[in-house]
């Protein structure tokens, strides 16, 4: 195990931790597939942004976080929520607009949060979570909680003013935050080549005097190594870092996407670089799991999703009489 050629994840985590990571990756994939299927069957009101193909980025970025640590997420945030330990039934209930959902049906796919597990929420505004993550890191520093915040954002957000203002403030105040850019190559239809003046978004870290790293975002071990390093750096009081996970969304931006900005070949090339297959192969190769174990895990997670969907279907809908509840705290039990 001390062989330096052994991948970071194998050197660093015990077998149970690695199995749990693969399990979460399966759960994300199957949550997204279940969401898509539910949409197709007319159970979903509204749209959704699926993260199929980006599972290693979500799970690998949360490996050294506890429930006390925070994340902020994006409109493509189901994976982050699962990675931070959310209950799948409550996630589906939110997706279905039900009272048992994480937001009691008021937020939906784009606002799922799980505050008790440290997930401060997905965000419907590109770049909206970046300054909020810095604020959470400011609280951690001032209140001496020792918590680190991981801020997920996409390549599209790196051209928002909020990105630049947030990174600058985090660096000036040396706050415990890790900016994790999930570069899936397109902000909706506009490629990073068309939208972004630097080749690697991580290059922008140098403008804010923080470490910047670009990794293969479909390689769980590479993501985990980069983000664990950045989290440790933050936790030691050394301030923020920027990690760029190069990845790809297999599905379109949302349900309206006709995929006219990319080729079938490009999509299939990336599908061949499936992060779940990559992770499974790694664990089999290093004898953490057998192929039969992996197959059993996949079957088990599929059942979890079926149970979660059943829970969500059975959950009551909020009543119209409570449509404006939760606007203000007044009169509500905290």
């Amino acid at each position: 195990m001390s062989d330096p050629n052994t991948p970071y994840a194998i050197r660093t985590y015990d077998a149970e931790t690695l199995k749990d990571a693969l399990r979460k990756m399966f759960l994300i994939r199957k949550f997204e597939e279940g969401a898509e299927d539910s949409y197709t069957r007319g159970l979903i009101h509204g749209t959704m942004h699926l993260s199929i193909g980006q599972e290693a980025s979500a799970v690998g970025s949360c490996m050294s976080l506890s429930d006390a640590d925070k994340i902020t997420s994006t409109h493509r945030g189901h994976g982050h929520c699962v990675a931070k330990g959310a209950d799948l039934g409550r996630m589906f209930a939110e997706f279905f607009g039900k009272e048992d959902g994480y937001c009691r049906g008021r937020g939906g796919s784009m606002h799922i949060a799980d505050v008790e597990k440290g997930n401060l929420g997905a965000n419907g505004i590109v770049g909206g979570g970046l300054p909020i993550a810095v604020g959470a890191a400011l609280s951690a520093k001032r209140l001496n909680t020792g918590a680190v915040t991981v801020c997920f954002f996409g390549d599209g957000a790196n051209n928002e003013g909020a990105f630049h203002e947030a990174l600058n403030m985090a660096a000036v105040w040396k706050l415990p935050v890790v900016f994790v850019c999930e570069n899936n190559r397109y902000g909706m239809s506009t490629s990073t080549e068309k939208s972004t003046a630097v080749k690697h978004i991580a290059d922008r870290a140098s403008a804010y005097n923080m470490p910047g790293t670009t990794v293969d975002g479909n390689d769980f071990s590479a993501v985990a190594e980069a983000v664990d390093t950045a989290v440790a750096h933050a936790r030691a009081g050394n301030g923020p870092s920027l990690v760029e996970n190069l990845t790809y969304r297999w599905r379109g931006h949302s349900k309206s996407d006709r995929n006219r900005y990319r080729t079938k070949e490009e999509i299939s090339d990336w599908m061949a670089r499936d992060p779940i297959l990559h992770m499974s192969a790694l664990l089999v190769e290093h004898k953490v799991m057998s192929e039969a174990d992996v197959a059993a895990l996949e079957t088990e997670t599929a059942q979890v999703i079926q149970d979660a969907i059943a829970f969500a279907n059975a959950s009551p809908a909020p009543t119209a009489a409570e449509a404006t509840r939760f606007v203000y705290t007044d009169g509500e039990a905290a």
Partner: peptide, 16 residues
């Protein structure tokens, strides 16, 4: 202003 306001929002959500 945008970033500063957002930092204040995030700080308010998390204990300050």
């Amino acid at each position: 202003e945008l970033g500063g306001a957002g930092v204040a929002v995030g700080a308010a959500m998390t204990g300050l």
